[in-house]
Amino acid sequence: MRYEIVGRYLDNLTGADAGDWLGVQYYRKQWVDPDSPTFFGTPPPGVPLTQMGWAVHPDGLREMLHRAARTGLPLYVTENGIATTDTERVAYLRSHLTALARARAEGVDVRGYLHWSAFDNFEWSEGYRPKFGLIAVGDDFTRHPKPSAHALARVATTGRLDALDQPE
């Protein structure tokens, strides 16, 4: 349901008021359950989940980029990330950046990618438990870049996805 609402909005985003570019935020795939009070369903067994209980579905990013591209505007992924352990974060980066690269190869004008979040942060409904950040924040607020931060920096520096696999 949410996908269709966003889709209808994107379909009508054209003309002089469309803007200069469009930001796409993508985190998860969601199931609809008309019997649920929230209309959201539970992911099927075996679907990988984040610390927030969100289903990991990298091709959904590619699909949303194609949908957003119908506006004719250049696209920027302004938020994309995962609350998880750092090892899983590197795998998430690999799968989602691969989906983004595939969309670009298919002709989608994606000009940038911003990961959510640079830092582990406070989530209103979850407190400090979910770890979204590329940089850990200690109890004394000291900051420590995680291996995923170095991996994404290598991708940004080289423009190559295989840089995720290189040692620090």
Rank of each mutant, 00 (worst) to 15 (best):
G81L: 05
D162S: 08
W124L: 09
A156S: 12
F141G: 00
R129S: 15
G19N: 10
A83H: 08
G19E: 11
R111N: 05
R143F: 10
S148Q: 12
L73Y: 01
R154F: 07
R160E: 15
L97K: 03
T158D: 12
L100R: 03
V32Q: 07
F141W: 15
L164S: 05
A151P: 13
A136N: 11
G133I: 05
L22V: 01
V137C: 10
Y26N: 10
A105N: 08
D165R: 00
R104F: 02
M1H: 14
A68T: 09
H57S: 13
T50F: 11
F119E: 07
F39P: 00
G15E: 08
Y113K: 04
Y92M: 03
G7K: 12
W116R: 02
P145T: 06
F40A: 10
A16E: 15
F40G: 03
A153K: 10
W31Q: 05
K131R: 15
L10M: 04
P44Y: 07
I135K: 05
V32F: 14
W116V: 00
A105H: 08
L100I: 08
T85E: 13
V56L: 14
V6S: 14
Q166N: 07
P58R: 13
A16I: 00
G107Q: 03
M64W: 13
I82M: 15
L134G: 09
L65E: 02
A156F: 13
L93K: 07
R111D: 04
W21C: 02
F122D: 03
D165M: 04
S36G: 05
A103R: 00
P167V: 03
V24A: 04
R67Q: 15
R2S: 14
Y76N: 04
G41S: 03
K146R: 15
W124C: 03
D33S: 11
L13C: 08
M52H: 11
A105Q: 12
I135Y: 11
D35L: 02
A83T: 06
F132D: 10
T85W: 12
P145K: 05
E168Y: 07
E168D: 13
E106Y: 00
T78Q: 06
Y3S: 11
P34N: 07
A118R: 02
A163Q: 06
K146E: 10
P44E: 15
A68H: 06
T14Y: 00
A153Q: 12
D17G: 14
R143Q: 15
R67V: 08
Y113R: 01
G138L: 04
T85S: 14
T87W: 02
D139K: 11
E63I: 14
P37M: 09
V77Q: 08
L164H: 02
N121T: 09
A16F: 00
H144D: 15
F132M: 06
G7F: 00
R160T: 11
A101E: 14
I82C: 14
D120G: 02
Y113P: 02
A149F: 13
A153D: 09
P58Q: 12
R154M: 11
V137R: 06
T42L: 10
L97F: 07
Y26D: 08
W116I: 00
L114T: 15
F119V: 09
L114K: 01
